[in-house]
Amino acid sequence: MKAYTLEIWRLRYFWLSLVKIDLNTRYRRSALGLGWSLLQNILMTIVLSVVFGTLFQLDIAFYAPFILIGLAYWGFLSSCVLMGATSLYNAEPYMKQHKVPVAIYPLRTVLGASFHFSIALVVAFVATLFFQGPEHLLAWPVTLMGFLLLFLFGWSLAVLTAFSNVYFPDVSHLLEVGMQIAFYATPIIYPLSMLEARGVGFLVTINPFSYHLELIRKPVLEGTLPDVTIILGAVGLTVLSAIFAIITLWKREDQIVLEL
């Protein structure tokens, strides 16, 4: 495993340049460039704030940053799962020419997604400063720790979906449907407390995508550490998915090219 990691490191220029190409391609095509992906989240937040803020009677100073962080998080996670799923399929021409560690291709996807996520988070941070002032600033480094954990979680999910998509042709379609459902089962546009008040909080507890969100959002919005159960849940899920991802790579790394 050490040799494998070193090989990935040796080829860092390769995957970094692929990430760079991905980002360039994405932004070259639109006049607003980087601004476009930000604008999307901001517009969505304005609409949601007006509609659901009124509906749920929520304070906009809390609700707007709340949604911004939630959307940024979901954007990252769904990119990892959905684009990760096609990452090996798209890499077929490389894989049939050069023997490089397969883990590089999901990494490419996750690094690109991380870039967008970072920018979206910065917007969310600015919005929080604007609406709430700097009172929770000290707790923000905790969010960065959460980011690292989420990165590993995202990469593990991307590896797992990428491999399953090679073995079963309908996985990426199923995942799309699944992620749409999961979006509503994750407290992105509604606060968890509203579900708990009505006794259906378990929906979120059994949702593996809700832990990392809380880990990232709570320090920014409330200036406190997340509950121990949240931290343990996020760490546990990350470790578990990483173990599965590593086992998958270890067992299938060489054979996967025969299935493409």
Binding site: I21, T25, P93
Partner: peptide
């Protein structure tokens, strides 16, 4: 072999 494959077409 297959040297014509594996290009990034947008780049």
């Amino acid at each position: 072999f297959d040297i014509g494959l594996g290009f990034e077409m947008e780049a």
